[in-house]
Design a protein around this nucleic acid. Structure first.
Lengths: 120, 120
DNA sequence: ATTCGTTGTGTCTGGATGGACATAACCAGC
DNA sequence: GCTGGTTATGTCCATCCAGACACAACGAAT
Protein backbone atom coordinates (compact mmCIF):
# COMPACT_ATOMS: atom_id res chain seq x y z
CA UNK A 1 0.00 0.00 0.00
CA UNK A 2 2.84 2.32 0.76
CA UNK A 3 4.77 0.76 -2.11
CA UNK A 4 5.37 3.01 -5.05
CA UNK A 5 4.65 0.40 -7.60
CA UNK A 6 5.10 1.74 -11.08
CA UNK A 7 7.34 4.77 -10.94
CA UNK A 8 8.01 5.46 -14.54
CA UNK A 9 9.08 8.91 -13.46
CA UNK A 10 10.58 9.49 -10.06
CA UNK A 11 11.31 12.61 -8.07
CA UNK A 12 14.68 13.71 -6.85
CA UNK A 13 15.30 16.75 -4.72
CA UNK A 14 18.52 18.67 -5.14
CA UNK A 15 19.54 20.58 -2.05
CA UNK A 16 21.82 23.54 -2.45
CA UNK A 17 24.33 21.88 -0.17
CA UNK A 18 24.76 19.20 -2.78
CA UNK A 19 22.76 16.51 -1.10
CA UNK A 20 20.41 14.68 -3.40
CA UNK A 21 17.41 12.94 -1.96
CA UNK A 22 15.34 10.68 -4.13
CA UNK A 23 13.61 7.36 -4.13
CA UNK A 24 16.76 5.48 -3.20
CA UNK A 25 17.40 7.26 0.09
CA UNK A 26 13.69 7.43 0.86
CA UNK A 27 13.29 3.69 0.40
CA UNK A 28 16.41 3.12 2.46
CA UNK A 29 15.00 5.15 5.34
CA UNK A 30 11.76 3.23 5.05
CA UNK A 31 13.61 -0.08 5.09
CA UNK A 32 15.63 0.94 8.15
CA UNK A 33 12.40 1.90 9.88
CA UNK A 34 10.91 -1.48 9.02
CA UNK A 35 13.95 -3.62 9.75
CA UNK A 36 15.53 -1.79 12.65
CA UNK A 37 18.95 -2.25 11.13
CA UNK A 38 21.08 -0.67 8.45
CA UNK A 39 22.52 -3.96 7.31
CA UNK A 40 19.12 -5.65 7.09
CA UNK A 41 17.82 -2.67 5.15
CA UNK A 42 20.77 -2.91 2.80
CA UNK A 43 20.21 -6.60 2.25
CA UNK A 44 16.56 -6.01 1.55
CA UNK A 45 17.42 -3.38 -1.02
CA UNK A 46 20.18 -5.43 -2.60
CA UNK A 47 22.97 -3.08 -1.69
CA UNK A 48 26.10 -3.63 0.35
CA UNK A 49 26.17 -2.56 3.97
CA UNK A 50 29.02 -0.25 3.03
CA UNK A 51 26.82 1.55 0.59
CA UNK A 52 23.80 1.70 2.85
CA UNK A 53 25.84 3.03 5.72
CA UNK A 54 27.54 5.68 3.61
CA UNK A 55 24.16 6.92 2.40
CA UNK A 56 22.98 7.17 5.99
CA UNK A 57 26.17 8.96 6.92
CA UNK A 58 25.68 11.41 4.09
CA UNK A 59 22.12 12.17 5.15
CA UNK A 60 22.99 12.55 8.80
CA UNK A 61 25.81 14.91 7.88
CA UNK A 62 23.66 17.18 5.75
CA UNK A 63 20.85 17.67 8.22
CA UNK A 64 21.12 19.57 11.45
CA UNK A 65 19.90 16.57 13.39
CA UNK A 66 20.57 12.96 12.38
CA UNK A 67 17.83 11.08 10.56
CA UNK A 68 19.04 7.71 11.76
CA UNK A 69 20.05 6.75 15.25
CA UNK A 70 22.27 3.71 15.58
CA UNK A 71 23.90 1.67 18.30
CA UNK A 72 26.32 -1.19 18.16
CA UNK A 73 27.00 -4.23 20.25
CA UNK A 74 24.43 -5.93 22.40
CA UNK A 75 22.13 -8.87 22.08
CA UNK A 76 21.60 -8.69 18.37
CA UNK A 77 24.75 -6.83 17.54
CA UNK A 78 23.14 -3.46 17.51
CA UNK A 79 20.64 -1.71 15.33
CA UNK A 80 19.35 1.51 13.90
CA UNK A 81 16.11 3.45 14.07
CA UNK A 82 14.72 6.49 12.40
CA UNK A 83 14.69 9.59 14.54
CA UNK A 84 11.63 11.77 14.67
CA UNK A 85 13.39 14.02 12.19
CA UNK A 86 14.04 11.05 9.99
CA UNK A 87 10.39 10.10 9.92
CA UNK A 88 9.46 13.68 9.19
CA UNK A 89 11.86 13.92 6.25
CA UNK A 90 10.60 10.63 4.86
CA UNK A 91 6.99 11.70 5.30
CA UNK A 92 7.65 15.03 3.61
CA UNK A 93 9.32 13.38 0.66
CA UNK A 94 6.47 10.89 0.31
CA UNK A 95 3.98 13.72 0.48
CA UNK A 96 5.77 15.53 -2.33
CA UNK A 97 5.79 12.34 -4.38
CA UNK A 98 2.05 11.96 -3.89
CA UNK A 99 1.48 15.61 -4.66
CA UNK A 100 3.42 15.30 -7.88
CA UNK A 101 1.69 12.14 -9.06
CA UNK A 102 -1.72 13.40 -8.05
CA UNK A 103 -1.74 17.08 -8.92
CA UNK A 104 0.83 16.75 -11.71
CA UNK A 105 -0.79 13.81 -13.44
CA UNK A 106 -1.51 15.77 -16.60
CA UNK A 107 2.06 17.00 -17.04
CA UNK A 108 3.61 13.66 -16.09
CA UNK A 109 1.26 11.91 -18.47
CA UNK A 110 2.31 14.12 -21.37
CA UNK A 111 5.98 13.64 -20.52
CA UNK A 112 5.59 9.88 -20.35
CA UNK A 113 3.62 9.77 -23.57
CA UNK A 114 6.32 11.72 -25.37
CA UNK A 115 8.98 9.13 -24.69
CA UNK A 116 10.37 7.01 -27.46
CA UNK A 117 8.63 3.65 -27.36
CA UNK A 118 10.57 0.96 -25.52
CA UNK A 119 13.03 -0.94 -27.67
CA UNK A 120 11.82 -4.30 -26.33
CA UNK B 1 9.64 36.90 -14.22
CA UNK B 2 10.00 33.43 -15.59
CA UNK B 3 13.31 33.15 -13.80
CA UNK B 4 13.39 30.69 -10.95
CA UNK B 5 15.19 32.92 -8.57
CA UNK B 6 16.05 31.18 -5.35
CA UNK B 7 15.88 27.46 -5.86
CA UNK B 8 17.28 26.08 -2.65
CA UNK B 9 15.74 22.78 -3.61
CA UNK B 10 15.34 21.79 -7.21
CA UNK B 11 13.36 19.10 -8.93
CA UNK B 12 14.74 16.37 -11.11
CA UNK B 13 12.67 13.82 -12.94
CA UNK B 14 14.03 10.35 -13.44
CA UNK B 15 12.60 8.59 -16.46
CA UNK B 16 12.66 4.83 -16.53
CA UNK B 17 14.68 4.96 -19.72
CA UNK B 18 17.49 6.52 -17.72
CA UNK B 19 17.04 10.07 -18.92
CA UNK B 20 17.18 12.62 -16.18
CA UNK B 21 15.52 15.97 -16.68
CA UNK B 22 16.09 18.73 -14.18
CA UNK B 23 16.78 22.40 -13.95
CA UNK B 24 19.88 22.15 -16.10
CA UNK B 25 18.20 20.77 -19.19
CA UNK B 26 15.14 22.92 -18.63
CA UNK B 27 17.23 26.08 -18.46
CA UNK B 28 19.15 24.94 -21.52
CA UNK B 29 15.94 24.52 -23.51
CA UNK B 30 14.83 27.93 -22.33
CA UNK B 31 18.13 29.47 -23.35
CA UNK B 32 17.97 27.86 -26.79
CA UNK B 33 14.48 29.22 -27.20
CA UNK B 34 15.69 32.68 -26.25
CA UNK B 35 18.92 32.70 -28.20
CA UNK B 36 18.01 30.68 -31.25
CA UNK B 37 21.30 28.81 -31.05
CA UNK B 38 22.81 25.95 -29.10
CA UNK B 39 26.20 27.58 -28.88
CA UNK B 40 24.81 30.91 -27.68
CA UNK B 41 22.73 29.06 -25.12
CA UNK B 42 25.80 27.19 -23.98
CA UNK B 43 27.79 30.39 -23.66
CA UNK B 44 25.01 31.99 -21.69
CA UNK B 45 24.93 29.06 -19.32
CA UNK B 46 28.69 28.87 -19.01
CA UNK B 47 29.02 25.46 -20.56
CA UNK B 48 30.96 24.30 -23.58
CA UNK B 49 29.20 23.86 -26.88
CA UNK B 50 30.17 20.20 -26.74
CA UNK B 51 28.31 19.76 -23.50
CA UNK B 52 25.26 21.73 -24.57
CA UNK B 53 25.02 19.82 -27.81
CA UNK B 54 25.36 16.45 -26.13
CA UNK B 55 22.57 17.31 -23.72
CA UNK B 56 20.35 18.27 -26.65
CA UNK B 57 21.30 15.07 -28.41
CA UNK B 58 20.44 13.06 -25.32
CA UNK B 59 17.04 14.70 -25.02
CA UNK B 60 16.22 14.32 -28.68
CA UNK B 61 17.17 10.67 -28.54
CA UNK B 62 14.98 9.86 -25.57
CA UNK B 63 11.80 11.44 -26.85
CA UNK B 64 9.79 10.18 -29.75
CA UNK B 65 10.02 13.54 -31.46
CA UNK B 66 12.99 15.90 -31.15
CA UNK B 67 12.73 18.78 -28.71
CA UNK B 68 15.22 20.90 -30.60
CA UNK B 69 15.36 21.52 -34.31
CA UNK B 70 18.68 22.66 -35.71
CA UNK B 71 20.19 23.69 -39.02
CA UNK B 72 23.72 24.50 -40.02
CA UNK B 73 25.34 26.79 -42.49
CA UNK B 74 23.78 29.93 -43.85
CA UNK B 75 23.91 33.59 -43.08
CA UNK B 76 24.61 33.32 -39.39
CA UNK B 77 26.13 29.89 -39.47
CA UNK B 78 22.96 28.12 -38.54
CA UNK B 79 20.81 27.92 -35.47
CA UNK B 80 18.43 25.94 -33.37
CA UNK B 81 14.85 26.32 -32.22
CA UNK B 82 12.58 24.52 -29.85
CA UNK B 83 9.99 22.33 -31.50
CA UNK B 84 6.41 22.40 -30.33
CA UNK B 85 7.20 19.26 -28.39
CA UNK B 86 10.19 20.97 -26.87
CA UNK B 87 8.10 23.86 -25.65
CA UNK B 88 5.55 21.47 -24.26
CA UNK B 89 8.15 19.49 -22.32
CA UNK B 90 9.65 22.68 -20.95
CA UNK B 91 6.23 24.02 -20.01
CA UNK B 92 5.30 20.77 -18.30
CA UNK B 93 8.49 20.74 -16.29
CA UNK B 94 8.01 24.35 -15.26
CA UNK B 95 4.44 23.60 -14.25
CA UNK B 96 5.63 20.75 -12.04
CA UNK B 97 8.23 23.04 -10.51
CA UNK B 98 5.56 25.61 -9.73
CA UNK B 99 3.23 22.94 -8.39
CA UNK B 100 5.92 21.66 -6.10
CA UNK B 101 6.93 25.06 -4.77
CA UNK B 102 3.34 26.19 -4.40
CA UNK B 103 1.45 23.17 -3.13
CA UNK B 104 4.50 21.61 -1.49
CA UNK B 105 5.63 24.72 0.34
CA UNK B 106 5.04 23.23 3.76
CA UNK B 107 7.08 20.09 3.08
CA UNK B 108 9.85 21.95 1.29
CA UNK B 109 9.97 24.46 4.08
CA UNK B 110 10.45 21.77 6.68
CA UNK B 111 13.11 20.06 4.58
CA UNK B 112 14.98 23.32 4.11
CA UNK B 113 14.72 24.21 7.75
CA UNK B 114 16.16 20.87 8.75
CA UNK B 115 19.40 21.43 6.89
CA UNK B 116 22.61 21.98 8.72
CA UNK B 117 23.26 25.71 8.79
CA UNK B 118 25.60 26.95 6.06
CA UNK B 119 29.26 26.90 7.01
CA UNK B 120 29.74 30.48 5.77
C1' DA C 1 35.88 30.87 -53.85
C1' DT C 2 36.43 32.89 -49.31
C1' DT C 3 34.57 34.03 -45.00
C1' DC C 4 32.18 33.25 -40.82
C1' DG C 5 29.59 31.36 -37.12
C1' DT C 6 27.27 27.45 -36.19
C1' DT C 7 26.30 22.44 -36.07
C1' DG C 8 28.17 17.89 -35.63
C1' DT C 9 31.99 14.38 -34.03
C1' DG C 10 36.17 12.21 -32.36
C1' DT C 11 39.59 11.59 -28.80
C1' DC C 12 41.96 12.04 -24.48
C1' DT C 13 42.35 12.54 -19.68
C1' DG C 14 41.62 13.65 -14.67
C1' DG C 15 38.42 13.27 -11.18
C1' DA C 16 34.45 11.53 -9.12
C1' DT C 17 31.73 7.33 -8.15
C1' DG C 18 30.50 2.85 -6.77
C1' DG C 19 31.52 -2.03 -5.84
C1' DA C 20 34.27 -5.42 -3.64
C1' DC C 21 37.00 -6.86 0.15
C1' DA C 22 39.01 -6.55 4.54
C1' DT C 23 38.99 -5.42 9.38
C1' DA C 24 38.37 -3.13 13.82
C1' DA C 25 35.07 -1.77 17.59
C1' DC C 26 31.27 -2.71 20.22
C1' DC C 27 28.45 -5.20 23.78
C1' DA C 28 24.23 -8.11 25.63
C1' DG C 29 23.91 -12.89 26.45
C1' DC C 30 25.68 -17.21 27.58
C1' DG D 1 35.79 -14.43 28.19
C1' DC D 2 33.85 -16.13 24.02
C1' DT D 3 30.23 -15.62 20.46
C1' DG D 4 27.59 -13.41 17.13
C1' DG D 5 25.59 -9.89 14.47
C1' DT D 6 25.92 -5.16 13.74
C1' DT D 7 28.08 -0.66 13.34
C1' DA D 8 32.00 1.85 11.66
C1' DT D 9 35.97 2.57 8.60
C1' DG D 10 39.86 1.96 5.31
C1' DT D 11 41.66 0.73 0.84
C1' DC D 12 41.84 -0.65 -3.87
C1' DC D 13 40.21 -0.69 -8.49
C1' DA D 14 37.14 -0.68 -12.60
C1' DT D 15 34.31 2.36 -14.64
C1' DC D 16 31.64 6.13 -15.85
C1' DC D 17 31.51 11.14 -16.86
C1' DA D 18 32.76 16.05 -17.57
C1' DG D 19 35.83 19.07 -19.50
C1' DA D 20 39.17 20.31 -22.82
C1' DC D 21 40.86 20.38 -27.31
C1' DA D 22 40.77 19.62 -32.10
C1' DC D 23 38.55 19.52 -36.43
C1' DA D 24 35.30 18.47 -40.31
C1' DA D 25 30.73 19.89 -42.57
C1' DC D 26 27.66 23.20 -43.85
C1' DG D 27 25.70 27.08 -46.51
C1' DA D 28 24.21 32.08 -47.10
C1' DA D 29 26.42 36.34 -47.97
C1' DT D 30 29.93 38.83 -50.11
Amino acid sequence: MAMTQDPRISLRLHFESGLTFGRGKADLLQAIDDEGSISAAGRRMGMSYRRAWSLVEEMNAHFAAPLVDSSRGGAHGGGAQLTERGRQVLADYRALEVLLRDQGAAELGRLRAGQRSASA
